[in-house]
Design a protein around this nucleic acid. Sequence first.
DNA 1: CGCGCGCTCTGAGGCTATAG
DNA 2: CTATAGCCTCAGAGCGCGCG
Length: 323
Amino acid sequence: MNLNALDLNLVRVLDALLRERSVTRAGEQIGLSQPAVSAALNRLRHVLNDQLFVRRGNDMVPTPRAESLTEPVRAALREIERVFQTGKDFDPAGLERTFTFMGADFFSMLLMPPLAARIAAMAPGVSFRFLDSARGDVSRLLQDDEIDAALERPLEVPDWVSSTPLFDSPFAIIAARDNTTIKQAGIADGEPLPIELFCELPHVLRSIDGSMSGSTDAALDKIGLKRRVSLALPHFQAVALAVASGNHLAAVPRQFAVAAVKSLPVVIYQPPFAIAVPEVRMYWHARHDDEPPHRWIRNQILEAVEALGFRDLDGDETTGSRT
DNA sequence: CGCGCGCTCTGAGGCTATAG
DNA sequence: CTATAGCCTCAGAGCGCGCG
């Protein structure tokens, strides 16, 4: 093969085609028109002496040759990017990029608005997209570069996934402000709920996979008790709304509970027993470890989390629910 | 003579419109 | 949806010319 015939732009086109499996979308991704990509694909076909992509309906199916180039091409482009980035100061003000994150609605509600506001001021060319946790397998999405980072409880991940802790996420119990059962029992806001009451009242569980039991049930099971989960919902926001309008309880991350109290007629109680305190971590592909824009946005997330006060919950309450 | 400047020509690769 | 046609732009090669 003749290296003279292969310019770097063709490699970018090939990479985009492998990602998008569409001439039109590949063009959109790298800022070329559809015909320009089509022509580039033709040149690639001649240079590499392979069809590379065969049209099947609306899908451009890669040939085995094209398939085999996916990883090496991506790695080569990353390396080139790295070479030209080093020594050059990274300036977020000029960055044109959309970052995609994934996590619970908790984050789309609480983290994303302040993060977006913060970033708008220093990097007007940056946009965000936030996908729901239910979207799927974190490792695969990171591998395919479909997400830049995932914000999740500790996960089993391959060694090419990097991560850093964001904050501890102890549980708080929320209930409607006018929950008559709790009122009658004379429990004040912020107090621990008696365990009999905790087990007697129905619960709403936030569950992305439809499971009807969570870590609270595991903790209860250890002390030989049970609660009744009568509603499982995929979003924390929906859990809070359900709690606000009924006699349900819900064990939710304390940070979320604090926010819910501000917008809904709910109050916080302490759990009557120890529930293991989960950590929330940020996960990303190790290939982005040293990439300046990625490193920058990760720092921005850490700073935003810090600014929200997610890291410094009231010490007593936190330790009170620790195992 | 050798170098630098500027003109012209050519081809690659972009675009839009349209055919397949 | 992709491929092709026709047109446009622009970078680079080639070449002539003037000057030191």
